[in-house]
Amino acid sequence: MKIVQISDTHLGASVESTSEAARKVIDYIDNVLRPDFVVHTGDVVVIDPDNAEDREHAHGLLSELRTPYRVLPGNHDIGEPAEHAWQGQVVTSERVGAFTEVFGPAQWRVDLGDVTLLGLNSEVFGSGIDDEARQWEWIEETVSGIGSERPVLLFQHKPLWTVVENSDHNLDIRESGALLLEHLERVNLKSVGTGHLHCFRTKQRGGALEVWAPSTAFMAGAGDLGLGDPVTQQLGIVEYTIDGGNVTVELLRVPGVHDALMTELDDVKASVDTVLAKA
């Protein structure tokens, strides 16, 4: 069985550079890789969680996938917890609702053969809004129903494990990670796939493989986030191969999608400038 993870597409109605990359990604997935399922781990839209036109544009592009897929929200889709929230983009129930109306549930379970995929909304962890409490209830109920034998692949936007201690950025789900790991001790967790950091890395975490997926849109500047471990700075997607209880991953370049920094994409910079002007 093969699963493809894409992340941080940063699509916008007036942002052709990232949309062109996404079209090439979709074509490559459908016509070359032909996986069993696709997971998008968030930051679907370019930068503004309140831009309905960008949401509809992104949904239209992703709907061109012929492969079954699910989408998860990132911080630029619905905001994030108030502490260190970028440009005051704080997660709210209204923003979550606007996302789910277009892309579907913000947390989900998908059973594929003998494997379970779990998708979680990382942006509500530590937020204190009602959606967080409802997700914890959902996690408790869902995890209890999986059992301890069935392989589980978890996906969310932000990393579960701490990225950098005492960071002034919301790089991971902070204190909520320890509680989530307690819940996941009851399942056969094989991998945790996330995005957000715009780079690729794998790291074994006990019995689970941690996977940071790169962006399909633009790379983070080398050293911008102060990441401790070596990472791969390039655009791409991640292919998961599940064989019995074993999960392996491979970083793939998509033909025609060329590495770029955000500062090299004028249409992305224009979208960022618009948000900064409103802040």
Rank of each mutant, 00 (worst) to 15 (best):
A220Y: 01
T162I: 13
V238E: 02
P151L: 00
Q204V: 14
L160P: 15
L209Y: 01
S215W: 07
G147Y: 10
T232K: 13
L181H: 12
I146E: 03
G147R: 15
I242V: 15
V187Q: 07
V152T: 05
H157R: 11
G177N: 05
V187G: 02
G193I: 09
L227D: 02
I242D: 01
F200C: 00
R201E: 12
L189F: 07
P230E: 02
I242F: 03
K203E: 12
T241E: 12
A208R: 06
R205W: 05
A222H: 12
K190G: 05
G207I: 08
N246P: 04
E185W: 08
V192G: 00
M219Y: 00
S148M: 04
A178L: 14
G223M: 09
L225E: 03
K190D: 06
L154W: 11
S167F: 09
M219P: 00
V192N: 07
G207F: 08
V192R: 10
V187R: 04
W212T: 09
S144F: 06
G206L: 10
I146L: 13
G145H: 08
S191H: 02
K158L: 15
H196N: 14
F218G: 00
V247M: 05
C199T: 11
A217T: 07
D224I: 10
I237M: 11
L160D: 04
N170V: 15
N166K: 11
V187W: 07
G236Y: 01
N188T: 01
R150A: 11
R186A: 15
D243C: 03
V152E: 09
L184I: 09
V247W: 00
G244Q: 03
I173D: 04
N170K: 12
K158Y: 05
H169N: 14
L180R: 11
V187I: 15
D224L: 12
D224E: 15
G236K: 02
T216G: 01
G245D: 15
P230Y: 01
L154I: 13
G195D: 02
E175I: 06
N188Q: 05
L189Y: 07
Q233I: 14
H169Q: 14
H169A: 12
F218L: 01
D229Q: 13
K203G: 00
G228Q: 06
G244L: 02
A178M: 10
V238T: 11
A208C: 08
V238R: 09
S191L: 13
D172P: 13
V247K: 03
G195T: 13
W161E: 05
L235M: 07
Q234T: 14
T232Q: 14
L181P: 02
S148D: 14
P151I: 00
S176F: 11
T162Q: 15
R205N: 07
T216Q: 01
S191A: 15
C199D: 10
R150M: 08
F218C: 01
D172M: 12
